[in-house]
């Protein structure tokens, strides 16, 4: 059943957010600490485990649908931002993007050659 996949995805997301919230309060900050990352690890665990828990082909569709619709959701997210407010810092976006990409490119040959030596 498709709902099983959706339910599993929902359960993983909620558990991750809960753990993130608990971590946040543990450190005394009003923030969700890595909740989404934890939820992704949980889902990776379930999709990799074969022995205890197997997700059927149809249940899987409940998860893959959401995975496929992620770019449109990001587009919707972009369309609801306060872009006018952000434009004050427009140059910063360009400068930051430029430096990050330039330095990252420089890192690639360094890391690629690590083990060869």
């Amino acid at each position: 059943m498709v709902i099983y996949g959706i339910a599993l995805l929902g359960a993983c997301t909620l558990s991750g957010l809960l753990v993130g919230k608990l971590l946040g309060s543990l450190f005394g900050i009003e923030a969700n600490v890595g909740g989404i990352g934890i939820a992704m690890l949980l889902l990776m665990y379930f999709s990799n485990s074969n022995s205890y828990f197997k997700i059927g082909d149809i249940s899987e569709k409940g998860i893959t649908f959401w995975s496929l619709i992620y770019i449109p959701i990001i587009v919707a997210m972009a369309a609801k931002q306060n872009v006018i407010g952000a434009l004050d810092g427009g140059w910063m976006a360009v400068v930051a993007g430029f430096f990050v990409v330039a330095i990252s490119f420089l890192c690639i040959p360094l890391i690629t050659n690590i083990k060869k030596q």
């Binding site: 992704m40 889902l43 998860i63 959401w66 619709i69 972009a78």
Partner: peptide, 15 residues
Amino acid sequence: GGSMLRDFAIVATAY
């Protein structure tokens, strides 16, 4: 595009 569906879809990409 709110945080609920966004987080849901992002987690799904890990599948």
